[in-house]
């Protein structure tokens, strides 16, 4: 697993979770990968305030993955920023829906929709 950042404006940066092979859309954010995610996430976010977490390659998120995402939100909001999530696969969306995540974090169709949400 690796994290790939891209800046959309001085204020907004997207971080995509990718597999070792760029075409791999079966990446898991779970007990086995969360330590790696946590190692890399702060440098991937860097100085950015507003972050879009792109989950298009992520096929599965478990409770520890959920905890890691919530921890990112916590850090960003503490420093005045925000985190939005985009491009969520169906199974991951069901898990977010079950825990009522949309009440806490904005979840968007794709990167552009997330950027637009930051703009407003």
């Amino acid at each position: 697993m690796k994290l790939m950042s891209q800046d959309f404006s001085p204020r907004i940066r997207s971080v995509a979770i990718a597999g070792n092979d760029a075409a791999d859309v079966t990446v898991r954010l779970d007990l086995s990968t969360v330590p790696l995610f946590k190692q890399q996430i702060s440098s991937a976010i860097g100085e950015a305030e507003n972050v879009i977490l792109d989950l298009s390659n992520v096929a599965f998120v478990d409770s520890s993955g959920l905890g890691a995402i919530l921890s990112c939100v916590r850090d960003l909001t503490a420093s005045g920023g925000d985190l939005k999530i985009c491009s969520v696969q169906q199974r991951v969306m069901v898990m977010f829906d079950l825990v009522r995540l949309p009440k806490i974090i904005g979840i968007h169709e794709d990167v552009n929709a997330a950027i637009a949400a930051f703009g407003s």
Partner: peptide
């Protein structure tokens, strides 16, 4: 700020 412990709720 505890990151774990959501499993049983899910």
């Amino acid at each position: 700020n505890r990151e774990r412990g959501y499993g049983w709720m899910i």
